[in-house]
Design a protein around this nucleic acid. Structure first.
Lengths: 250, 250
DNA sequence: TGTCTTGATTGATCTGAATCAAAATTAATA
DNA sequence: TATTAATTTTGATTCAGATCAATCAAGACA
Protein backbone atom coordinates (compact mmCIF):
# COMPACT_ATOMS: atom_id res chain seq x y z
CA UNK A 1 0.00 0.00 0.00
CA UNK A 2 2.43 2.59 1.20
CA UNK A 3 5.10 1.52 -1.18
CA UNK A 4 2.92 1.06 -4.13
CA UNK A 5 2.45 4.76 -3.65
CA UNK A 6 5.15 7.32 -3.58
CA UNK A 7 7.41 5.04 -5.43
CA UNK A 8 5.13 4.46 -8.27
CA UNK A 9 4.73 8.14 -8.07
CA UNK A 10 6.86 8.79 -11.07
CA UNK A 11 7.91 5.52 -12.42
CA UNK A 12 7.60 6.82 -15.91
CA UNK A 13 9.53 9.95 -15.66
CA UNK A 14 12.81 9.26 -13.99
CA UNK A 15 14.34 7.89 -17.13
CA UNK A 16 13.10 10.61 -19.39
CA UNK A 17 16.03 12.92 -19.05
CA UNK A 18 15.70 15.31 -21.92
CA UNK A 19 18.20 17.97 -22.85
CA UNK A 20 15.77 20.79 -22.38
CA UNK A 21 17.21 22.47 -19.35
CA UNK A 22 14.97 25.46 -19.11
CA UNK A 23 11.80 23.44 -18.98
CA UNK A 24 11.44 20.73 -16.43
CA UNK A 25 8.04 19.55 -17.48
CA UNK A 26 9.28 17.37 -20.21
CA UNK A 27 11.21 15.25 -17.82
CA UNK A 28 8.84 15.63 -14.98
CA UNK A 29 5.42 14.55 -14.15
CA UNK A 30 3.18 15.78 -16.80
CA UNK A 31 4.13 15.05 -20.39
CA UNK A 32 3.19 11.44 -20.78
CA UNK A 33 2.47 10.53 -24.33
CA UNK A 34 2.31 14.06 -25.63
CA UNK A 35 3.45 15.09 -29.06
CA UNK A 36 5.90 17.90 -29.68
CA UNK A 37 3.21 20.50 -30.22
CA UNK A 38 1.53 19.60 -27.00
CA UNK A 39 4.77 19.72 -25.12
CA UNK A 40 5.32 23.13 -26.61
CA UNK A 41 1.96 24.36 -25.36
CA UNK A 42 2.72 22.90 -22.02
CA UNK A 43 6.16 24.42 -21.89
CA UNK A 44 4.68 27.86 -22.12
CA UNK A 45 2.83 27.23 -18.90
CA UNK A 46 5.72 26.29 -16.75
CA UNK A 47 8.15 28.95 -17.63
CA UNK A 48 8.96 30.02 -14.12
CA UNK A 49 11.64 28.15 -12.30
CA UNK A 50 12.50 28.72 -8.71
CA UNK A 51 15.42 27.84 -6.48
CA UNK A 52 15.03 27.28 -2.78
CA UNK A 53 17.96 27.10 -0.45
CA UNK A 54 18.20 24.49 2.22
CA UNK A 55 15.91 25.58 5.01
CA UNK A 56 13.99 27.92 2.73
CA UNK A 57 10.26 27.84 2.24
CA UNK A 58 8.55 27.04 -1.02
CA UNK A 59 5.28 28.15 0.49
CA UNK A 60 3.79 28.81 3.91
CA UNK A 61 0.56 27.60 5.42
CA UNK A 62 -2.13 30.13 4.75
CA UNK A 63 -0.52 31.57 1.64
CA UNK A 64 -2.68 32.12 -1.39
CA UNK A 65 -2.60 29.26 -3.81
CA UNK A 66 -1.63 30.08 -7.34
CA UNK A 67 0.54 27.30 -8.58
CA UNK A 68 1.50 23.73 -8.22
CA UNK A 69 5.20 23.00 -7.98
CA UNK A 70 7.02 20.24 -9.78
CA UNK A 71 10.23 19.35 -8.04
CA UNK A 72 13.08 19.48 -10.49
CA UNK A 73 15.81 18.61 -8.04
CA UNK A 74 16.33 18.48 -4.32
CA UNK A 75 14.37 17.28 -1.37
CA UNK A 76 11.55 18.91 0.56
CA UNK A 77 9.25 18.21 3.44
CA UNK A 78 5.68 19.35 3.90
CA UNK A 79 4.36 19.93 7.37
CA UNK A 80 1.54 21.46 9.29
CA UNK A 81 2.54 23.68 12.15
CA UNK A 82 0.60 23.56 15.40
CA UNK A 83 -0.11 26.58 17.53
CA UNK A 84 2.09 25.17 20.27
CA UNK A 85 5.06 25.28 17.94
CA UNK A 86 5.41 21.59 17.22
CA UNK A 87 5.15 20.39 13.67
CA UNK A 88 3.68 17.33 12.01
CA UNK A 89 5.49 16.28 8.87
CA UNK A 90 2.99 15.12 6.26
CA UNK A 91 5.47 14.06 3.62
CA UNK A 92 8.95 14.02 2.16
CA UNK A 93 9.22 14.86 -1.49
CA UNK A 94 11.82 14.40 -4.16
CA UNK A 95 12.53 14.97 -7.82
CA UNK A 96 9.57 14.52 -10.09
CA UNK A 97 6.92 14.91 -7.44
CA UNK A 98 4.19 17.48 -7.46
CA UNK A 99 3.51 19.78 -4.52
CA UNK A 100 0.56 21.95 -3.63
CA UNK A 101 -2.37 19.73 -4.55
CA UNK A 102 -3.84 20.07 -1.08
CA UNK A 103 -4.31 23.78 -1.70
CA UNK A 104 -6.66 23.38 -4.64
CA UNK A 105 -9.66 22.82 -2.43
CA UNK A 106 -9.58 26.14 -0.62
CA UNK A 107 -7.13 28.20 -2.69
CA UNK A 108 -5.02 28.43 0.44
CA UNK A 109 -1.97 26.37 1.20
CA UNK A 110 -2.69 24.05 4.11
CA UNK A 111 0.92 23.23 4.88
CA UNK A 112 4.44 24.54 4.80
CA UNK A 113 6.83 23.23 2.19
CA UNK A 114 10.45 23.45 3.29
CA UNK A 115 13.58 22.52 1.38
CA UNK A 116 15.74 19.99 3.22
CA UNK A 117 18.51 20.58 0.72
CA UNK A 118 19.01 23.13 -2.02
CA UNK A 119 16.20 22.48 -4.43
CA UNK A 120 14.77 23.61 -7.69
CA UNK A 121 11.11 23.61 -8.59
CA UNK A 122 9.03 24.57 -11.59
CA UNK A 123 6.02 26.68 -10.93
CA UNK A 124 2.89 25.53 -12.70
CA UNK A 125 0.13 28.14 -12.55
CA UNK A 126 -2.88 26.05 -11.74
CA UNK A 127 -5.42 28.04 -13.72
CA UNK A 128 -3.31 27.55 -16.80
CA UNK A 129 -2.88 23.89 -16.12
CA UNK A 130 -6.62 23.43 -15.95
CA UNK A 131 -7.06 25.42 -19.12
CA UNK A 132 -4.54 23.45 -21.06
CA UNK A 133 -5.68 20.12 -19.74
CA UNK A 134 -8.96 20.81 -21.51
CA UNK A 135 -7.05 20.81 -24.75
CA UNK A 136 -4.78 17.91 -23.94
CA UNK A 137 -6.85 15.07 -22.50
CA UNK A 138 -3.87 12.90 -21.72
CA UNK A 139 -2.48 15.71 -19.62
CA UNK A 140 -5.70 15.95 -17.68
CA UNK A 141 -5.78 12.23 -17.21
CA UNK A 142 -2.24 12.26 -15.97
CA UNK A 143 -2.91 15.05 -13.56
CA UNK A 144 -5.87 13.17 -12.15
CA UNK A 145 -3.72 10.13 -11.68
CA UNK A 146 -1.22 12.16 -9.74
CA UNK A 147 -3.84 13.51 -7.38
CA UNK A 148 -5.23 10.04 -6.94
CA UNK A 149 -1.79 8.69 -6.22
CA UNK A 150 -1.41 11.23 -3.47
CA UNK A 151 -4.62 9.95 -1.93
CA UNK A 152 -3.42 6.36 -2.12
CA UNK A 153 -0.12 7.37 -0.61
CA UNK A 154 -1.88 9.07 2.27
CA UNK A 155 -3.99 5.98 2.87
CA UNK A 156 -0.78 4.02 3.11
CA UNK A 157 0.54 6.40 5.74
CA UNK A 158 -2.74 6.16 7.62
CA UNK A 159 -2.35 2.39 7.64
CA UNK A 160 1.17 2.76 8.94
CA UNK A 161 0.22 5.22 11.66
CA UNK A 162 -2.88 3.31 12.62
CA UNK A 163 -1.59 -0.19 12.90
CA UNK A 164 2.17 -0.58 12.82
CA UNK A 165 4.64 -0.53 15.65
CA UNK A 166 7.79 1.53 15.73
CA UNK A 167 10.13 -0.91 14.04
CA UNK A 168 7.62 -1.76 11.33
CA UNK A 169 7.11 1.91 10.63
CA UNK A 170 10.79 2.60 10.26
CA UNK A 171 11.29 -0.44 8.03
CA UNK A 172 8.41 0.67 5.83
CA UNK A 173 9.81 4.16 5.69
CA UNK A 174 13.27 3.00 4.68
CA UNK A 175 11.93 0.67 2.03
CA UNK A 176 9.80 3.42 0.64
CA UNK A 177 12.79 5.74 0.39
CA UNK A 178 14.84 2.95 -1.08
CA UNK A 179 12.39 2.36 -3.89
CA UNK A 180 12.05 6.01 -4.65
CA UNK A 181 15.82 6.38 -4.91
CA UNK A 182 16.03 3.33 -7.12
CA UNK A 183 13.41 4.67 -9.50
CA UNK A 184 15.43 7.85 -9.83
CA UNK A 185 18.59 6.01 -10.68
CA UNK A 186 20.25 6.10 -7.30
CA UNK A 187 21.30 3.20 -5.13
CA UNK A 188 18.47 1.49 -3.38
CA UNK A 189 20.71 0.19 -0.63
CA UNK A 190 22.99 3.08 0.07
CA UNK A 191 21.77 6.58 0.59
CA UNK A 192 21.82 9.65 2.77
CA UNK A 193 18.85 10.81 4.72
CA UNK A 194 18.06 14.47 4.27
CA UNK A 195 15.92 14.78 7.36
CA UNK A 196 16.61 14.64 11.08
CA UNK A 197 15.46 11.89 13.43
CA UNK A 198 12.92 14.32 14.77
CA UNK A 199 11.44 14.87 11.31
CA UNK A 200 11.32 11.16 10.68
CA UNK A 201 9.62 10.74 14.02
CA UNK A 202 7.09 13.40 13.27
CA UNK A 203 6.27 11.74 9.98
CA UNK A 204 6.03 8.28 11.52
CA UNK A 205 4.17 9.32 14.64
CA UNK A 206 7.12 8.53 16.92
CA UNK A 207 9.46 10.44 19.17
CA UNK A 208 12.99 10.98 17.94
CA UNK A 209 14.42 8.74 20.65
CA UNK A 210 12.23 5.91 19.47
CA UNK A 211 13.39 6.44 15.90
CA UNK A 212 16.99 6.36 17.04
CA UNK A 213 16.43 3.17 19.00
CA UNK A 214 14.71 1.53 16.06
CA UNK A 215 17.69 2.41 13.86
CA UNK A 216 20.04 0.92 16.42
CA UNK A 217 17.96 -2.22 16.70
CA UNK A 218 17.95 -2.80 12.95
CA UNK A 219 21.68 -2.24 12.94
CA UNK A 220 22.23 -4.68 15.80
CA UNK A 221 20.44 -7.27 13.71
CA UNK A 222 22.73 -6.49 10.79
CA UNK A 223 19.82 -5.57 8.60
CA UNK A 224 21.09 -2.06 8.05
CA UNK A 225 24.20 -0.06 8.79
CA UNK A 226 23.67 3.39 10.18
CA UNK A 227 26.27 6.09 10.17
CA UNK A 228 24.41 9.14 11.27
CA UNK A 229 22.52 10.26 8.16
CA UNK A 230 24.05 7.63 5.97
CA UNK A 231 22.09 4.41 5.61
CA UNK A 232 23.13 1.15 4.05
CA UNK A 233 20.61 -1.61 3.66
CA UNK A 234 22.45 -4.90 4.10
CA UNK A 235 19.55 -7.29 3.85
CA UNK A 236 16.59 -5.87 2.06
CA UNK A 237 14.48 -9.00 2.28
CA UNK A 238 14.84 -9.17 6.04
CA UNK A 239 13.98 -5.48 6.17
CA UNK A 240 10.83 -6.30 4.22
CA UNK A 241 9.93 -8.93 6.77
CA UNK A 242 10.24 -6.30 9.46
CA UNK A 243 7.41 -4.41 7.85
CA UNK A 244 5.12 -7.09 9.13
CA UNK A 245 2.31 -8.89 7.46
CA UNK A 246 0.40 -5.73 7.19
CA UNK A 247 0.82 -4.27 3.78
CA UNK A 248 3.47 -6.58 2.41
CA UNK A 249 5.16 -5.54 -0.75
CA UNK A 250 5.25 -8.25 -3.34
CA UNK B 1 -7.22 20.48 10.00
CA UNK B 2 -9.28 17.38 10.27
CA UNK B 3 -12.49 19.21 10.83
CA UNK B 4 -11.96 21.77 8.26
CA UNK B 5 -11.93 18.78 5.96
CA UNK B 6 -14.65 16.25 5.68
CA UNK B 7 -17.10 18.70 7.01
CA UNK B 8 -16.38 21.31 4.46
CA UNK B 9 -16.61 18.44 2.11
CA UNK B 10 -20.01 19.32 0.82
CA UNK B 11 -21.07 22.45 2.46
CA UNK B 12 -22.65 23.66 -0.70
CA UNK B 13 -24.74 20.74 -1.64
CA UNK B 14 -26.72 19.66 1.33
CA UNK B 15 -29.32 22.35 0.85
CA UNK B 16 -29.74 21.88 -2.86
CA UNK B 17 -32.56 19.39 -2.72
CA UNK B 18 -34.02 19.43 -6.16
CA UNK B 19 -37.09 17.61 -7.27
CA UNK B 20 -35.26 15.56 -9.87
CA UNK B 21 -35.39 12.16 -8.28
CA UNK B 22 -33.80 10.07 -10.96
CA UNK B 23 -30.63 12.08 -11.08
CA UNK B 24 -28.68 12.64 -7.93
CA UNK B 25 -26.03 14.82 -9.42
CA UNK B 26 -27.99 17.97 -9.24
CA UNK B 27 -28.21 17.75 -5.52
CA UNK B 28 -24.89 16.15 -5.03
CA UNK B 29 -21.35 17.07 -5.42
CA UNK B 30 -20.85 18.21 -8.90
CA UNK B 31 -23.22 20.81 -10.25
CA UNK B 32 -21.94 23.99 -8.76
CA UNK B 33 -22.83 27.01 -10.81
CA UNK B 34 -23.96 25.13 -13.85
CA UNK B 35 -26.75 26.25 -16.11
CA UNK B 36 -29.67 24.06 -17.12
CA UNK B 37 -28.04 22.86 -20.33
CA UNK B 38 -24.93 21.86 -18.53
CA UNK B 39 -26.86 20.02 -15.88
CA UNK B 40 -28.64 18.23 -18.68
CA UNK B 41 -25.36 17.12 -20.21
CA UNK B 42 -24.21 16.04 -16.84
CA UNK B 43 -27.39 14.17 -16.09
CA UNK B 44 -26.80 11.94 -19.06
CA UNK B 45 -23.58 10.78 -17.50
CA UNK B 46 -24.91 9.68 -14.20
CA UNK B 47 -27.90 7.73 -15.26
CA UNK B 48 -27.11 4.60 -13.33
CA UNK B 49 -28.25 4.42 -9.76
CA UNK B 50 -27.40 1.60 -7.45
CA UNK B 51 -28.69 0.37 -4.13
CA UNK B 52 -26.51 -1.41 -1.63
CA UNK B 53 -27.90 -3.23 1.34
CA UNK B 54 -26.39 -2.91 4.76
CA UNK B 55 -23.27 -5.06 4.76
CA UNK B 56 -23.10 -5.08 0.98
CA UNK B 57 -20.07 -4.04 -1.04
CA UNK B 58 -20.01 -1.12 -3.40
CA UNK B 59 -16.68 -2.32 -4.67
CA UNK B 60 -13.89 -4.64 -3.63
CA UNK B 61 -10.17 -4.07 -3.46
CA UNK B 62 -8.61 -5.12 -6.71
CA UNK B 63 -11.71 -4.58 -8.80
CA UNK B 64 -11.35 -2.78 -12.07
CA UNK B 65 -12.09 0.90 -11.79
CA UNK B 66 -14.72 2.29 -14.08
CA UNK B 67 -16.72 4.77 -12.12
CA UNK B 68 -16.76 7.11 -9.22
CA UNK B 69 -19.71 6.86 -6.89
CA UNK B 70 -21.66 9.75 -5.45
CA UNK B 71 -23.46 8.78 -2.29
CA UNK B 72 -27.11 9.68 -2.59
CA UNK B 73 -28.14 8.33 0.77
CA UNK B 74 -26.81 6.04 3.44
CA UNK B 75 -23.51 5.51 5.14
CA UNK B 76 -20.43 3.59 4.01
CA UNK B 77 -16.96 2.78 5.19
CA UNK B 78 -13.87 2.29 3.08
CA UNK B 79 -11.18 -0.06 4.31
CA UNK B 80 -8.11 -1.90 3.24
CA UNK B 81 -8.01 -5.54 4.14
CA UNK B 82 -4.81 -7.11 5.37
CA UNK B 83 -3.73 -10.60 4.50
CA UNK B 84 -4.08 -11.62 8.12
CA UNK B 85 -7.76 -10.77 7.98
CA UNK B 86 -7.75 -7.58 9.95
CA UNK B 87 -8.99 -4.44 8.36
CA UNK B 88 -7.95 -0.82 8.53
CA UNK B 89 -10.81 1.60 8.04
CA UNK B 90 -9.68 4.55 5.94
CA UNK B 91 -12.88 6.54 6.07
CA UNK B 92 -16.58 6.84 6.82
CA UNK B 93 -18.69 8.39 4.13
CA UNK B 94 -22.13 9.89 3.95
CA UNK B 95 -24.58 11.57 1.62
CA UNK B 96 -23.01 13.86 -0.92
CA UNK B 97 -19.54 12.43 -0.73
CA UNK B 98 -17.62 10.97 -3.61
CA UNK B 99 -16.04 7.52 -3.51
CA UNK B 100 -13.47 5.85 -5.67
CA UNK B 101 -10.98 8.64 -6.25
CA UNK B 102 -8.12 6.51 -4.99
CA UNK B 103 -8.68 4.13 -7.89
CA UNK B 104 -7.95 6.67 -10.59
CA UNK B 105 -4.21 6.28 -10.25
CA UNK B 106 -4.01 2.61 -11.13
CA UNK B 107 -7.45 1.86 -12.57
CA UNK B 108 -7.85 -0.63 -9.74
CA UNK B 109 -9.76 -0.07 -6.55
CA UNK B 110 -7.35 0.05 -3.62
CA UNK B 111 -9.96 -0.44 -0.93
CA UNK B 112 -13.28 -2.04 -0.12
CA UNK B 113 -16.35 0.15 0.16
CA UNK B 114 -18.98 -1.37 2.42
CA UNK B 115 -22.43 -0.05 3.27
CA UNK B 116 -22.99 0.36 7.00
CA UNK B 117 -26.67 0.95 6.35
CA UNK B 118 -28.84 0.59 3.29
CA UNK B 119 -27.45 3.08 0.85
CA UNK B 120 -27.95 4.47 -2.59
CA UNK B 121 -25.23 5.70 -4.88
CA UNK B 122 -25.03 7.17 -8.33
CA UNK B 123 -22.46 5.71 -10.63
CA UNK B 124 -20.38 8.25 -12.50
CA UNK B 125 -18.39 6.67 -15.32
CA UNK B 126 -15.04 8.31 -14.94
CA UNK B 127 -14.14 8.46 -18.60
CA UNK B 128 -17.32 10.37 -19.27
CA UNK B 129 -16.73 12.66 -16.36
CA UNK B 130 -13.34 13.58 -17.73
CA UNK B 131 -14.80 14.10 -21.16
CA UNK B 132 -17.54 16.35 -19.97
CA UNK B 133 -15.36 18.29 -17.63
CA UNK B 134 -13.48 19.47 -20.71
CA UNK B 135 -16.67 21.12 -21.84
CA UNK B 136 -17.74 22.43 -18.48
CA UNK B 137 -14.75 24.07 -16.80
CA UNK B 138 -16.58 24.73 -13.58
CA UNK B 139 -17.28 21.03 -13.31
CA UNK B 140 -13.63 20.24 -13.77
CA UNK B 141 -12.68 22.81 -11.22
CA UNK B 142 -15.15 21.38 -8.77
CA UNK B 143 -13.93 17.87 -9.29
CA UNK B 144 -10.38 18.98 -8.65
CA UNK B 145 -11.47 20.65 -5.45
CA UNK B 146 -13.09 17.42 -4.31
CA UNK B 147 -9.95 15.42 -4.91
CA UNK B 148 -7.91 18.05 -3.14
CA UNK B 149 -10.32 18.04 -0.21
CA UNK B 150 -9.80 14.32 0.11
CA UNK B 151 -6.07 14.93 0.36
CA UNK B 152 -6.54 17.60 3.02
CA UNK B 153 -8.88 15.30 4.89
CA UNK B 154 -6.30 12.52 4.84
CA UNK B 155 -3.64 14.89 6.13
CA UNK B 156 -5.97 15.67 8.98
CA UNK B 157 -6.29 12.01 9.81
CA UNK B 158 -2.52 11.60 9.60
CA UNK B 159 -2.19 14.41 12.10
CA UNK B 160 -4.68 12.71 14.36
CA UNK B 161 -3.02 9.33 14.14
CA UNK B 162 0.45 10.74 14.45
CA UNK B 163 0.10 13.06 17.38
CA UNK B 164 -3.14 12.75 19.33
CA UNK B 165 -3.93 10.55 22.28
CA UNK B 166 -6.98 8.34 22.54
CA UNK B 167 -9.39 10.80 24.07
CA UNK B 168 -8.37 13.57 21.70
CA UNK B 169 -8.88 11.24 18.76
CA UNK B 170 -12.36 10.29 19.82
CA UNK B 171 -13.33 13.89 20.52
CA UNK B 172 -12.07 14.92 17.12
CA UNK B 173 -13.95 12.07 15.52
CA UNK B 174 -17.22 12.94 17.23
CA UNK B 175 -16.92 16.60 16.38
CA UNK B 176 -16.21 15.71 12.80
CA UNK B 177 -19.31 13.55 12.61
CA UNK B 178 -21.31 16.20 14.37
CA UNK B 179 -20.41 18.85 11.82
CA UNK B 180 -21.12 16.57 8.93
CA UNK B 181 -24.56 15.75 10.29
CA UNK B 182 -25.26 19.41 10.91
CA UNK B 183 -24.37 20.32 7.35
CA UNK B 184 -26.82 17.71 6.14
CA UNK B 185 -29.62 19.07 8.20
CA UNK B 186 -29.46 16.62 11.07
CA UNK B 187 -28.84 17.32 14.71
CA UNK B 188 -25.27 18.09 15.53
CA UNK B 189 -25.67 16.99 19.11
CA UNK B 190 -27.83 13.92 18.87
CA UNK B 191 -27.13 11.13 16.44
CA UNK B 192 -26.65 7.44 15.96
CA UNK B 193 -23.35 5.90 15.08
CA UNK B 194 -23.52 3.52 12.15
CA UNK B 195 -20.27 1.80 12.90
CA UNK B 196 -19.07 -0.50 15.67
CA UNK B 197 -16.50 0.35 18.30
CA UNK B 198 -14.10 -1.86 16.46
CA UNK B 199 -14.54 0.10 13.25
CA UNK B 200 -14.10 3.37 15.08
CA UNK B 201 -10.98 1.93 16.66
CA UNK B 202 -9.61 0.82 13.34
CA UNK B 203 -10.17 4.27 11.90
CA UNK B 204 -8.63 6.01 14.90
CA UNK B 205 -5.73 3.65 15.37
CA UNK B 206 -7.07 2.33 18.68
CA UNK B 207 -8.35 -0.97 20.02
CA UNK B 208 -12.07 -1.28 20.57
CA UNK B 209 -11.65 -1.47 24.34
CA UNK B 210 -9.81 1.83 24.30
CA UNK B 211 -12.59 3.40 22.26
CA UNK B 212 -15.14 2.11 24.72
CA UNK B 213 -13.18 3.45 27.66
CA UNK B 214 -12.80 6.84 26.02
CA UNK B 215 -16.57 6.97 25.48
CA UNK B 216 -17.13 6.12 29.12
CA UNK B 217 -14.66 8.73 30.25
CA UNK B 218 -16.35 11.47 28.24
CA UNK B 219 -19.66 10.36 29.63
CA UNK B 220 -18.36 10.38 33.21
CA UNK B 221 -17.36 13.97 32.64
CA UNK B 222 -20.87 14.75 31.41
CA UNK B 223 -19.55 15.92 28.09
CA UNK B 224 -21.50 13.32 26.16
CA UNK B 225 -24.18 10.73 26.87
CA UNK B 226 -23.64 7.33 25.36
CA UNK B 227 -26.36 4.76 24.91
CA UNK B 228 -24.79 2.09 22.83
CA UNK B 229 -24.79 3.53 19.30
CA UNK B 230 -26.71 6.61 20.27
CA UNK B 231 -24.63 9.66 21.11
CA UNK B 232 -25.71 12.92 22.62
CA UNK B 233 -23.25 15.75 22.90
CA UNK B 234 -24.06 17.66 26.05
CA UNK B 235 -21.27 20.19 26.00
CA UNK B 236 -19.81 20.74 22.59
CA UNK B 237 -17.35 23.41 23.69
CA UNK B 238 -15.85 21.16 26.32
CA UNK B 239 -15.67 18.43 23.74
CA UNK B 240 -13.73 20.81 21.53
CA UNK B 241 -11.30 21.45 24.34
CA UNK B 242 -10.74 17.72 24.55
CA UNK B 243 -9.36 17.78 21.05
CA UNK B 244 -6.31 19.44 22.47
CA UNK B 245 -4.28 22.36 21.27
CA UNK B 246 -3.26 20.44 18.28
CA UNK B 247 -5.46 21.40 15.38
CA UNK B 248 -7.94 23.56 17.17
CA UNK B 249 -11.08 24.45 15.34
CA UNK B 250 -11.85 28.11 15.47
C1' DT C 1 -39.59 -17.50 24.72
C1' DG C 2 -35.23 -19.09 25.09
C1' DT C 3 -30.84 -19.83 22.64
C1' DC C 4 -27.10 -18.08 19.94
C1' DT C 5 -24.32 -14.65 18.30
C1' DT C 6 -22.42 -10.26 18.10
C1' DG C 7 -21.16 -6.08 20.21
C1' DA C 8 -20.06 -3.29 24.36
C1' DT C 9 -18.35 -2.48 28.89
C1' DT C 10 -15.21 -2.98 32.64
C1' DG C 11 -11.29 -4.81 35.27
C1' DA C 12 -6.42 -6.60 35.77
C1' DT C 13 -2.10 -6.92 33.87
C1' DC C 14 1.57 -6.21 30.62
C1' DT C 15 4.30 -3.77 27.28
C1' DG C 16 5.94 -0.53 23.82
C1' DA C 17 6.81 3.89 23.39
C1' DA C 18 7.00 8.43 25.78
C1' DT C 19 9.41 11.02 28.94
C1' DC C 20 13.27 12.46 31.63
C1' DA C 21 18.13 12.85 31.71
C1' DA C 22 22.85 12.62 30.42
C1' DA C 23 26.59 11.88 27.35
C1' DA C 24 28.54 11.74 22.78
C1' DT C 25 28.85 13.19 18.20
C1' DT C 26 28.36 16.26 14.48
C1' DA C 27 27.56 20.56 12.32
C1' DA C 28 27.66 25.58 12.36
C1' DT C 29 29.95 29.82 13.18
C1' DA C 30 33.04 33.17 15.13
C1' DT D 1 40.63 26.20 15.05
C1' DA D 2 37.92 27.06 18.93
C1' DT D 3 33.49 27.47 20.55
C1' DT D 4 28.81 26.97 20.42
C1' DA D 5 24.72 24.92 19.00
C1' DA D 6 22.20 21.16 17.18
C1' DT D 7 21.60 16.38 16.63
C1' DT D 8 22.00 11.66 17.99
C1' DT D 9 22.54 7.88 21.03
C1' DT D 10 21.75 5.43 25.16
C1' DG D 11 19.90 4.55 29.80
C1' DA D 12 16.26 4.73 33.51
C1' DT D 13 11.63 5.41 34.54
C1' DT D 14 6.80 6.19 33.70
C1' DC D 15 2.49 5.75 31.53
C1' DA D 16 -1.07 5.23 27.91
C1' DG D 17 -2.95 1.95 25.54
C1' DA D 18 -2.77 -3.09 24.26
C1' DT D 19 -3.83 -7.45 25.72
C1' DC D 20 -6.22 -10.90 28.34
C1' DA D 21 -10.44 -12.11 30.42
C1' DA D 22 -14.98 -11.91 32.20
C1' DT D 23 -19.51 -10.05 32.20
C1' DC D 24 -23.34 -7.86 30.27
C1' DA D 25 -26.71 -6.23 26.79
C1' DA D 26 -29.02 -6.58 22.41
C1' DG D 27 -30.52 -8.37 18.37
C1' DA D 28 -31.34 -12.44 15.41
C1' DC D 29 -33.73 -16.44 14.80
C1' DA D 30 -35.51 -21.01 15.40
Amino acid sequence: MLHDTSLHNHLDISHIRSSCASCSLRELCLPVGLNEDEIQVLGDVVSHKRKIQRGGYLHHTGAKFQSLFAIRSGFLKTCVLEQDGRQQVTGFHMTGELLGMDAISTDIHTCDAVALEDSEVCEIPFAKLEEISRIIPSLMRHFHKMMSREIVRDHGVMLLLGSMKAEERLATFLLNLSRRFLVRGYSESDFNLRMTREEIGSYLGLKLETVSRAFSKLQDENIITVDNKHIRINDISRLRMKMGNSSCIT
